[in-house]
Amino acid sequence: MDALWILASTGLWDAVLRIATPLIFGTLGALLCERAGVLNLGIEGIMTFGAMIGWLTVFSGGGLWTGLLVAALCGALFGLLHAGLTVPLGLSQHVTGLGITLFASALSYYIFRLVVPLEASPPTIAAFRPIEIPLVAEIPFLGEVLASQTAPTYLALALVAVMGWVLFRTPLGLAIRMTGENPHAAEAQGVNPLILRTACVMAGSALMGVGGAFLTMSAFNSFFPTMVQGRGWICIALVVFASWRPGWALFGAVLFAAFDAYQLRLQSALENAVPYQLFLMAPYLAAIGALALMARKARVPQALMRPYRRGER
């Protein structure tokens, strides 16, 4: 019975939104890159760097929003590196992305260790505080769940709507989707696929950086190596699960976060009856399971991972 009661607690759903936020940012970022035809496996490293640099900005006296902005800018720079190698040069998107992840993670740890040389407990910052919205707080269940959320979570939710609107209701979105489906046709329409792909990878990577920064600036208040824990890879899986649609990406991220939050609570409810590692494994296995369910049905952008060169078929 306890296991079911957890589902009705506001504590669970409050945690769900907190866990989902970095996934929403990351999944939207990866989705934007892939809609334009570029797989960005740099996501794990870019999130790590965003987490580190966001924390570092605030730690060295910057404001919280400045921290998010710096994380976004650094994400965009790594995106530029990824795009520079995969778009005009057409290098393998798999290997380049992994290279970006290895480079960005190593660079994050290097800079972190320069600032915090000791192995002692990592220094903390004053993270984002929950914002109170006068009327919403009165709503019985939802009000309590939302009461403990911070501003970046609202930003993530708003971005889902913005991304859906841009991709499916604007000429720019049409051009992006066309570039991901058939860059030759896009070029015939006067779109420059190389520039558009580069821009999308940069914008998407900026979102990944913000997703990482949320971890150190809202979910926790300090940085430690390996803290991203495969969240980037889970975002890549969520994009497939969502079949490259922002609304479904939100649904996938929340579903996944609910699963994660539920296993955390179930773990403490069952008190060591089952090895805790089984619970920790569950999210990764769930992501693989979701992929196996959805991969055949998913509508992959037809030019995903196909480099575009003018005059070549």
Binding site: V95, G99, I100, L102, F103, S105, A106, Y109, Y110
Partner: peptide, 9 residues
């Protein structure tokens, strides 16, 4: 780690 990762790129 930075050098090794960079050498991949």
């Amino acid at each position: 780690d930075v050098t090794v990762a960079l050498s991949l790129l």
